[in-house]
Amino acid sequence: MSDLAPILPSGVSLAAPVMLTLRVAGLATFFSFFAGVGAAWFVARGPFRGRGIIDALCALPLVLPPTVLGYYLILLVGRRGLMGPWLAEAGINLMFSWQGAVVAATVVVFPLIYKAARAALESVDHSLERAARTLGASEWKVFVRVSLPLAWRGIFAGTMLAFARGMGEFGATLMLAGNLPGRTQTLALAIYDAFQSGNDAQATLLVAVTSVLCMSVLLLAERLAHCGRRMWS
C-alpha cells in the first residue's frame, strides 16, 4: 500500500478514502436497514389515510438530485438549520465531518432498503400471518417470526444494493461533508478531485479500486444469498 501513497494528494494514502468509504457505507446501511424495514412494515400492513404520501416521502430520495438532498440536509442539520442550534448545544457538528457523510449516505440509500423491504413484505402469504394472529401472536411477533423470515431474501438484496450505493454516494456528501482529504474524502470524492486536478493516473487507480470493491460486494451478496437459500430449503 505504501508504494501507492506518493500519487495521492497531501500525503494521504489510498487506505484513507477506502476505509472512510467502507465506514460511511457500512454505518449508512446499518441505520437505513432498521429505518427502512420499519417504515416498510408500517406501510405494508394495509391501507390507511396518508399511506400514499408516506410512501412517496420514503421514496423521494430516489428521484431527487443528490445536490437537492444535500441542500435539504443543510437546511435541517446545518449550523443555521432547523436542528442546527440544538445539535450545537449537544456538541454535534455534522457539517464538514465524516459523521455528516454518514447522514448524507443514510438518506440516499434509505429508499433502496425501504422499497425492497416493502415489496418483500407485501409478497408474504398473508394467510400465514393471520394464522399466527389467530394463535394469539402479537403484531411484533408476527413480524419477527413469520413476515421477516419469509421476506428476508428481498430485504437482504435491498440491503446489499444499499451498501454498494453508499460506497458511491457523491452529491449529498459533497454538499454536507465537503471534500477534505483524510477527513471526509470518500473514494467517489477522491476520484472527482483527481479528475479535476488532471491526475489521470490517480483517477484510474481509484476507479479501479472502487470497481473491485463494488464487484466484491455484489459477488459476496450472491454467495450469501445462495447459502441462505440452501439453509432455508
Score class of each variant (00 low, 15 high):
M160C: 09
F163A: 00
F163S: 04
A164T: 01
R165S: 08
R165F: 11
G166K: 03
M167L: 15
G168C: 10
G168A: 14
G168R: 07
E169W: 11
E169G: 03
A172W: 13
A172E: 06
L174P: 04
L174V: 09
L174I: 05
M175D: 06
L176H: 11
A177T: 06
G178R: 00
G178C: 07
G178V: 04
N179P: 13
N179H: 05
P181A: 00
P181E: 00
R183P: 12
R183Y: 12
T186N: 04
A188H: 08
A188S: 14
L189M: 13
A190Y: 04
A190E: 06
A190W: 07
Y192N: 05
A194F: 13
A194K: 06
Q196K: 10
Q196M: 13
G198R: 12
G198M: 12
N199E: 09
D200N: 00
D200P: 01
A201R: 10
A203W: 13
L205T: 11
L205I: 13
L205F: 13
L205K: 07
L205M: 14
A208Q: 11
A208F: 15
V209D: 03
V209Y: 01
V209I: 10
V209T: 09
S211E: 03
C214N: 02
C214S: 05
C214F: 03
M215Q: 10
S216M: 06
S216A: 12
S216V: 11
V217A: 04
V217T: 08
R223Q: 11
R223D: 10
L224Q: 05
A225F: 12
H226A: 10
G228H: 11
R229L: 06
R229M: 06
R229N: 07
R229F: 03
R229I: 02
R229W: 01
R230N: 08
R230A: 03
R230P: 05
